[in-house]
């Protein structure tokens, strides 16, 4: 695809996104509400530990670190979460809207990736203010700025979280070629992702056996990993190894999605019309 075409897709997607800006801004702001509950929840947990005279640490996380961790996973998820991507692909398959990508000289995955980049850009422009405010108010929970190298790796882990989230969910959406109704399947995936990406709590808190398995899964890169990098929980050779594994997962899902698309199209019914 030419750069001009790519830019046009991004530009038009942004224009479309801005049409319902009121609804969008409200939705964006509402995402910040759970922070308050999280702060109270962990405050209660840690004060109970304190009262029982036990060390104020859960799975290696202090109270401050836990809140900082939670805020950082919010940043990670702002990159990795893909609302409506898999279900949208499945819906387009069911309704026949996929036809458009088969008829026009445009690659569906490229198109959807650019579309998603546009959505994220609009989201960041709206959410940047609230994010900055929350981090300013909560700065006391952070140990301070990490060194520049860690910051760079953190930034890279965010971009990779975006790519992994995109390719993983788009590959899931392709299942729609085989099973027309995928909403239950996606619900199960989201449930797994909620617990095993570290969105709910750090995966260090999982039982040892489960944690070992979860560390083999790609889900941790969607929330846990960027936060752990920022807080210095991953370092040295382990850090680079993790990045390499994440890159491998991205490539894997990019190929899986493409192969699934090619095979799916062959058995596709071209529904509707």
């Amino acid at each position: 695809m030419s750069p001009a075409a790519a830019w046009t897709i991004i530009r038009i997607s942004i224009a479309e996104r801005l049409i319902y800006r009121g609804d969008f801004a409200l939705g964006t702001l509402m995402r910040f509400l759970p922070i308050v509950t999280q702060v109270f929840l962990w405050a209660a947990v840690f004060s109970a530990l304190d009262a029982a005279g036990r060390p104020a640490e859960v799975a290696g996380f202090s109270y401050r670190e836990m809140i900082a961790y939670y805020l950082l996973t919010m940043v990670a998820r702002a990159f990795s979460s893909m609302p409506g991507l898999a279900s949208g692909i499945a819906r387009d398959i069911r309704s026949g809207a996929v036809n458009k990508y088969l008829i026009q000289p445009v690659d569906m995955l490229h198109y959807l990736l650019l579309h998603r980049i546009a959505h994220k850009l609009v989201y960041y422009s709206v959410a940047l203010g609230p994010f900055a405010l929350v981090f300013l108010l909560c700065r006391g929970f952070f140990p301070g700025w990490p060194d520049p190298e860690t910051l760079c790796v953190f930034a890279a882990s965010l971009v990779m979280a975006f790519l992994l989230g995109f390719f993983l969910e788009s590959a899931l959406g392709m299942i729609g070629f085989w099973f027309l109704e995928v909403s239950s399947l996606l619900f199960v995936y989201m449930l797994f992702a909620f617990f095993f990406s570290g969105h709910m709590f750090p995966i260090d808190m999982l039982p040892a056996g489960v944690a070992t398995v979860v560390r083999l899964l790609p889900l941790q890169y969607l929330a846990y990993f960027p936060a752990a990098v920022f807080l210095g929980k991953v370092s040295g050779p382990e850090l680079w190894q993790s990045l390499a594994v994440e890159a491998a997962w991205i490539v894997f899902f990019a190929f899986a999605g493409r192969i699934a698309f090619r095979r799916g199209v062959r058995r596709y019914g071209g529904y509707g019309g």
């Binding site: 030419s2 001009a4 075409a5 046009t8 897709i9 038009i12 224009a15 479309e16 049409i19 319902y20 026949g96 809207a97 036809n99 458009k100 008829i103 026009q104 000289p105 445009v106 509707g272 019309g273």
Partner: peptide, 27 residues
């Protein structure tokens, strides 16, 4: 291919925007 029962244009945007996209998709 034009299908009478299908809409291929961007629903919320002016047709001119969809046309511009076609310009670039078809180079």
């Amino acid at each position: 291919l034009v299908m009478g029962q299908k809409n291929q244009l961007w629903w919320d945007l002016p047709a001119a925007e969809s046309f511009r996209l076609h310009q670039h998709i078809y180079s």
